[in-house]
Design a protein around this nucleic acid. Structure first.
Lengths: 332, 332
DNA sequence: ATGAAAGCGCTAACAC
DNA sequence: GTGTTAGCGCTTTCAT
């Protein structure tokens, strides 16, 4: 059942059918009715490929993230998909993994699908920010508007929105030191732009508060509760009186370690997570965590891209403050 | 840059270029080299829409689930996407929500994209199993092979794989009663096929062990830790000595309630969750949970659909046993 | 307001 | 082994 069949059955030309499908104003109501009736009756759906060929668009946006099974990304994708769909855009999902090569490949692959826009979730896509590592973004932006959720790169066609991770981490560590904490563990699981910002905030806060920067207190580990716990356990004597982490999973791992070591929480150790996930209200005591404003970033992504696709212009870069959500693992 | 340009630059016909693109064996190595060189040089990518038009396929599979922000679905989607991509298929993601109408709409929408196969994640898509509620699946299956992850419907073209939810719930509740538990709370958050199976397993186990079926011990609530906790708190006197839930989030909610009520865990109350998620190892004590074999289901989905797309046939229905993973919230 | 016809870029049947 | 050509089903310009 194609446009010719409908045209024949409705006694009009294919051009008219096409116009009806696209709700063109230059077709008489009467004709529209007639054609629509036939379409309904025949259960006609325009062929998207042919449509795509003609319009050079299938109203699709590409969503690329390292791994949807991660809670932050899953929530992001859920939000994005819903909003884009609300605008009539379908979403192609590509989970790229974390390696530079596979990220580049993912972006190239998804571009071949002639998507109308591309959104990259998480700050892994800017690599170390070097020209070499962001070259693929530059190229991508030549084809479609690209939005970086929680990443920043100065490049035409690449739009960005950041969480102020440096600032919140700086403020948080300052608060910890002001509350008398001296040995603050920093847990992280990636070298992404945002993780780096968090680390910088941590380091600067230590320095500005006259605390030494102890290398053994910066621990890189897989983001899995049991792994973090075991990892810490294996380190023997590891004294600390506070923990900040780049994700809740890491913080909970530390919490589990602290429990095992009979440390009192929050008296002996303050623990602070990141992303304010369901894990934070799941553990005991509940975890103080940082709201990274994921939805605010995602919202901006959708809003900006939709404006761009309508031919409007858009402000280039914005950022949003994060918030500390206090729960039982802190006492300041 | 299209196939004509490449043909001209390489000094061959478009047919030859097309053959090279599709790696046809009936092109001489020499010609292939020549054409490939031009393609590389021009950075040529075949137009997917035109390709789709000709082949009536864009090598895409539709993945529909109620909500990717749910951990079970997120993990499923992550697995599916990865595997399908491994076979050269892209994935269109559609989050349908939980309402019948929106589920039907989602399936219809995604079918319009001329996907090559459709996978439905979670047992919400069979509704109550009535002909009326599964009609849309029948129609879908007329267009493409459909795979139901953890749902079952007898219908040509719809392939299914089930977790044995009834059995594991029956066994688990039996174990609880044998351990002397009398008032077992059943927490659920949906009326999906699988939730219903779990409920049946619970009810049958109670009956077979001579325990009364108390309506007030079957509680339907939103799957959010804090909500479950508040919900239970509001019920005043609610005596129970065990909890089984259709998802970990619900079980943790009950755990939080029990802690608040100063109940000892597992002495006073045994708690068992479902899906063995990260929440289970996050809470304290850690949650005994049921491994619903999500990956086994997803694996079968991919394997079956890929066989079908290669024109091979496939066994119709299979199921897989679930496993109880014991942790600190039980003592039997 | 409607129709005829020329693309859009590719695949595949057919001819050589 | 390679080229010619007719679709695939739609959009859109140009007539009328």
């Amino acid at each position: 059942m194609n446009i010719y069949d409908i045209a024949r059955l409705a006694g009009v030309s294919i051009a008219t059918v096409s116009r009806v499908v696209n709700d063109s104003p230059k077709v008489s109501e009467k004709t529209k009715q007639k054609v629509r009736a036939v379409m309904e009756e025949q259960n006609y759906t325009p062929n998207v490929f042919a449509r795509g060929l003609g319009l050079n668009s299938m109203r699709t946006v590409g969503i690329v993230c390292p791994d949807v099974s991660d809670a932050y990304m899953a929530e992001s994708v859920a939000y994005l998909e819903k909003r884009f769909r609300g605008y009539g855009y379908d979403c192609i999902l590509y989970c790229s993994g974390y390696k530079q090569e596979s990220k580049v490949n993912a972006v190239q692959m998804v571009l071949k699908k002639k998507i109308d826009a591309l959104v990259l979730v998480g700050s892994h896509y800017v690599g170390d920010g070097s020209e070499e590592e962001i070259g693929y973004l530059r190229e991508a932006a030549r084809e479609v508007p690209v939005f970086l959720i929680n990443g920043y790169v100065r490049c035409p066609g690449v739009y960005c929105m950041l969480s102020e991770n440096y600032q919140i981490m700086y403020d948080t560590v300052c608060a910890l030191t002001e509350a008398g904490r001296k040995r603050i563990l920093f847990l992280y699981d990636s070298h992404s732009y945002s993780a780096t910002q968090k680390l910088l905030g941590y380091e600067d806060a230590l320095r500005d508060n006259g605390l030494p920067m102890v290398e053994e207190l910066k621990i890189f580990t897989e983001n899995k509760i049991s792994t973090v716990r075991e990892n810490l356990l294996q380190r023997g004597e590891l004294n600390f009186d506070a923990v900040v982490a780049t994700d809740d999973g890491l913080a909970v791992g530390a919490l589990k370690y602290a429990m095992k070591k009979q440390m009192r929480i929050p008296e002996d150790v303050n623990i602070i997570g990141f992303n304010d996930s369901e894990l934070a209200v799941c553990c005991e005591p509940e975890l103080t965590s940082i709201d990274s404003r994921r939805d605010a970033l995602c919202k901006t992504a959708v809003d900006s891209l939709m404006l761009l696709l309508e031919g409007k212009s858009v402000r280039h870069k914005r950022s949003v403050r994060c918030h500390l959500i206090k729960r039982g693992t802190t006492n300041f």
